[in-house]
Amino acid sequence: MGKKKRGHPDVEELLSRPWCYYCERDFEDLKLLISHQKAKHFKCDRCGRRLNTAGGLSVHMNQVHKESLSSVENALPNRQGLEVEIFGMEGIPEDIVQQHNQRIIQNYYQAQAERYAATGNPPPGQNGKGPAKKLKIESPDDIKKRLAEHRARLAAQKAATGGSATHTPQEGLPNGPSPVQSASPGTFNSPFPPPGGQYPGYPPQQPPPVPGYTPPAQYPPAYPPSSLPTRPGSNLPAPPGLPPRPGQPGWQGGNTASTIDELVSGAAQSGDDIDQIIRMAEAGIKPKKSDAEGEEAAAPPPAAEKKSKKDKDKNVRMVYEDELSPEERMAMMPRYAFHPEAAAA
């Protein structure tokens, strides 16, 4: 099977890209990196002269403008120091290099895993090598909950039709962690053969036998209508919006994405992941989104935007959080308080 790259560079490629110590952005080649550093980090904000190193800028500021440079501009908060002498890739402390490589690798495998999960493709022979793959799965509780819903629906449907949609019995599967977690994507797909062939053959009275794994409630209508020619009493109309997609047969529905929409968006999203990682720091050329209520979306500040993905599970501390304004708080202090003579009585 030929390996398609689909614009996802492999990890060696990513690791070999030169990157900037100050902002963690990576570049096509060293020349670009150096001109980036001169423009973004070593540019004198008084006269615009571009120096080669932070030390050079410091000397320049001292001699030309009689000022002292305290920090490197546009740098990440912990990289603003002048102690390290950086030029291109030279001078980066070893531990920072390690950290960077680790981050690249981690991001790479995470994106890869997400891609596998989203597309359902098996990883090409590197099971267990990378960090645990992140499959899009629900917690056992979620699955149980959905199972309950599904059962209720089934019961209702069975009463009406006797032709409900159920899947391969899978006896002996544990109730706890989803089997999907333990099985490789290749194997977990197998219980869901193309519905066109076997689907109608299932006994209608079959109860959903796998507590740990049920098809999503939306599953049945997602099949191409042609595979269900005579489903009596199906109260859902044939889905005109979901034509059979060439090359993606029905077993895709066995993927853990709970809806087709999720599946599609998941695939689209993970397709961008690598790009996103690469461009993470490059808010400068980030495509603009004119999202009206887009609090997160239309963000010019690169520093904030860069990490926005992680923000959700990160602690946020607001320096000032109150219904009253700071001025009102200050006005209550005896030192600033004003007692009008009129109110004295």
Partner: peptide
């Protein structure tokens, strides 16, 4: 015109978490 309006985050700083859990914390300033 209303579709052109936007909002963005700014004046924030990342700090390593105090409890040493390794995660970063966003300090949000007014």
């Amino acid at each position: 015109s209303q579709a052109r309006k936007y909002a963005f985050k700014c004046h924030r700083q990342q700090q390593p978490q105090e409890n040493g859990s390794g995660g970063a914390m966003d300090v949000v300033y007014p």
